[in-house]
Nucleic acid binder design. Structure first.
Length: 764
DNA sequence: TCACAGTGACTTTTT
DNA sequence: GTCACTGTGA
């Protein structure tokens, strides 16, 4: 019996779906039906190859991609619901919760994010300033992406300085003391524990018959080793990637994983998918114009399957505000013609750029969603609540403890906090305190002032009470937690976990969800009053935000198990979409999103904003980095199905200062015949296509400001110091523009008209 | 111990 | 321009 879903595939796709046996590498161009191939393959394996669904593992990089993949696979084959479709990190976390004891990790760990890493590092090495610490923390994260422990001599790839290895070691010790893990550990620790314990590795290998990896071009060394360990002799491995879309080198992604795949896995079959079903050929022409400038690529040209379509539009706008207004206008006008808001996506290089769009869209009542903005979880009040939760889950979490012990103020100072933590650590070493770490120390600590003592007791009792409620809701203890042998297979474990969820959804009818816990924390800790008074004086919405977290918590059972799931979800899926204003229509909204986050997504109408040098691409140092930026642009362009707009602003407010911007060199790579250009073309754009008739000498410029700001004159700028004017020009908007070389070596462009407060002429 | 005010650094990109 | 950190005075 042939399945219907096979009949819609082209020959290459069909070959990819039905291929079995040797490892398979699918080189899938943008829009070539990659997700369709993977999801169909899952369905095919289950329906036609009789693979048990739970023996299939499919890993992606983002939660969003995993969710989409699961939904699409389920539509093709109901039983696919039982297959494991997860992100690399969530799969790592899942393994670590089950078998963390092999890596010396207690199962009640929580995941530390980048900020926590920095704080912990400062504690481990107090001589570091926060700034230094964040550089080191970044390197530690990178080291873990390469699966390098502090002892590993190869650590010099990251930083050859012995001091770095030492700091990394100090950090690791401190982290292990807290019983927590960081993001890198979610991959590295499972790798290390499998490599150290062949029995464990064999056992895990036997759990999967099929492993598939999406966006393989962005996998890093640690993830590669993870994969190597998961794939056994009888595991069928299939990876999908596109070298032109590799955009995570900064995070350790190694393009060699895809280039060397054949070497690492014998008899690899390679299938190429180059038919693009997504974008019109006009859009693909631009994409190709851009990406062909990259030297290090396997090289391919997408074949357009759809029609010509409309030429992409390049719009030059005067300012960042105008850019947002332009987009708002595009969206509103099309909406009047019946185009839903959700057809639109506005893409930008940095998160900070979303602000202008938010402002304008709010004014115009255009609904939008921001994808991937961490803002909600970075809010003070939310972090406080999460730290309460973290401390309840893991009483050795000193960072969480520090944050909340004196919030709101209970008369407990830094010194006392330090004392308690140290007391807890000492006691733990001499095993006076067995399980409840710092919490227990709160009760046993002696020698604090009366006021402090009272505060500490209050806090300790609060946590203890909350914890007891959770434990009393635990129900029957699951067998999973005590699992140290390999008697259960993943099917059974997954089944048990599913049963727990079922049990919960029956319980949750009585509203016994984790939101109760959060509510109690808010009320009893005093945070409610504390933030209510702040809200009153500063007009913020902190209390409301805390309520928001309650509703997120509603999906989890009100017990310890639910708590750790809740925390996992928060840490592993920060992308929780934050919606604005009128909640209901959440499905019909413009998407505001960073270019990086668009990987794997598509939209009928796409705007790529901020096409200016310094923003996109950023001022890059190496040709390699520039190529990565170019790939990012390529990814952005190929998200568009029908219409593509590129916007480039002449002025932009950066660091609270108005700066004259130069056009992005990427725009010069697109054949002008492939674009419709709106607005005045800046000289820096024309220059890309003209052959050496530059007129930026500034000698005879006819402008009122030309007499004052002459080439060769010396200037002083508030922020950059002294410098000399090296060229002058006039923009289309008749603004007088000067280029200044500063003593610091920096070169900057200014419009003197807007710099009256910062820039002065130095009279010689 | 805490609240406030002044100063300086800051923008990549993500799990 | 904004946020986080630091130092001072209560």
């Amino acid at each position: 019996m042939t399945q219907d879903y096979l009949s819609v595939l082209n020959p290459e796709q069909l070959e990819a779906v039905t291929h079995t046996g040797s490892p398979l590498l699918i080189l899938a161009g943008a829009g070539s039906g990659k997700t369709r191939v993977i999801t169909t393959k899952i369905a095919y394996l289950i329906d036609e190859q009789n693979i048990e669904p739970w023996k299939i593992l499919a890993v992606t990089f983002t939660k969003k991609a995993a969710t989409e993949m699961r939904e699409r696979a389920e539509k093709l084959c109901e039983r696919a619901v039982k297959s494991q479709i997860k992100t690399f990190h969530s799969f790592g976390a899942w393994l670590l919760r089950l078998y963390g004891n092999f890596a010396g990790i207690d199962s009640n760990f929580t995941v530390y994010d980048d900020d926590d890493m920095v704080s912990l590092l400062v504690k481990a090495a107090p001589q570091l300033s926060k700034q230094q610490a964040s550089i080191v923390a970044h390197k530690i994260a990178l080291a873990k992406d390469y699966c390098l422990t502090p002892e590993n001599p190869d650590l010099r790839i990251i930083d050859s300085d012995a001091e770095f290895a030492e700091l990394y070691g100090l950090y690791e010790n401190r982290l292990r003391e807290t019983g927590n893990v960081d993001f890198g550990d979610l991959i590295m620790l499972p790798v290390l524990m499998m490599e150290k314990n062949p029995d464990l590795r064999n056992y895990i290998q036997n759990q999967f018959k099929v492993i598939m990896v999406d966006e393989y071009q962005d996998s890093n060394v640690a993830q590669f080793r993870f994969l190597k360990n998961l794939v056994g002799e009888n595991t069928y491995l299939c990876v999908v990637g596109d070298d032109d879309q590799s955009i995570y080198k900064f995070r350790g992604a190694d393009i060699n994983n895809i280039l060397d795949f054949q070497k690492e896995f014998n008899n690899t079959k390679i299938i190429r998918l180059v038919k693009n079903y997504r974008s019109t050929s006009q859009i693909l022409k631009c994409a190709d114009d851009v990406v062909k400038n990259n030297k290090s690529r396997l090289g391919k040209t997408l074949e357009a399957v759809r029609g010509e379509g409309k030429k992409p539009v390049l719009a030059f706008v005067p300012s960042g505000d105008d850019e947002a207004t332009f987009c708002g206008e595009l969206v509103s006008q099309s909406n009047k013609k019946g185009v839903p808001y959700s057809d639109w996506a506005v893409l930008y290089r940095t998160n900070a750029q979303s602000l202008n769009f938010e402002k304008v869209f709010n004014q115009r009542k255009i609904p939008y969603v921001i994808v991937g903005s961490l803002k909600f979880f970075e809010r003070e009040e939310i972090k406080d609540l999460i730290c309460f939760c973290k401390f309840i889950a893991n009483p050795m979490d000193e960072l969480a403890f520090e944050r909340i012990i004196n919030k709101p103020a209970r008369g407990i100072g830094k010194v006392s906090v330090e004392k308690i933590i140290n007391f807890a650590k000492e006691s733990k070493k001499s095993s006076l305190i067995e399980t409840d770490g710092i919490l227990e120390a709160c009760f046993q600590m002696k020698g604090l002032s009366k006021k402090t003592q009272e505060g500490v007791s209050f806090f300790g009792n609060l946590i203890k009470d909350l914890k007891e409620i959770l434990i009393s809701n635990e129900g029957k203890k699951t067998e999973i937690e005590t699992l140290a042998d390999f008697s259960l297979d993943f099917e059974t474990i997954l089944q048990q976990q599913e049963n727990q969820l079922k049990e919960f959804s029956e319980n949750s009818a009585e509203e016994n969800t984790l939101s109760k816990l959060i509510e109690t924390i808010i009320k009893k800790s005093g945070l409610a009053e504390y933030y209510a008074s702040i809200d009153e004086t500063t007009g913020t919405q902190k209390v409301l935000n805390m309520q928001e977290l309650c509703s997120v918590a509603r999906d989890f059972p009100n017990n310890m198990e639910g708590l750790s799931r809740f925390l996992d979800q928060l840490e592993l899926d920060r992308s929780l979409e934050t919606e604005n204003s009128s909640d209901d229509e959440n499905k019909n909204a413009v998407t505001l999103i960073t270019l990086h986050n668009t990987k794997g997504l598509e939209f009928p109408k796409v705007v790529i904003s901020g096409m200016e040098y310094g923003i996109f691409p950023r001022r890059e140092k190496t040709p390699d980095e520039l190529e990565e930026e170019r790939r990012l642009f390529y990814v952005g362009i190929t998200r568009a199905k029908d219409h593509l707009y590129l916007t480039s602003s002449k002025l932009r407010v950066l660091y609270g200062r108005l700066e004259a911007m130069e056009v992005s060199p990427f725009l010069g790579e697109i054949n002008p015949e492939n674009l419709d250009v709106l607005g005045n073309q800046p000289p820096s754009y024309k220059r890309f296509f003209s052959k050496g008739n530059s007129s930026e000498n500034g000698e005879n410029l006819d402008h009122p400001l030309a007499k004052r700001w002459k080439k060769g004159a010396f200037v002083y700028h508030d922020d950059y110091g002294t410098g000399q004017i090296i060229n002058c020009s006039i923009t289309e908007d008749e603004e007088y523009c000067i280029g200044v070389q500063f003593e610091t070596g920096e070169k900057k462009k200014f419009l003197p008209k807007y710099q009256q407060n910062h820039l002065t002429l130095v009279v010689e």
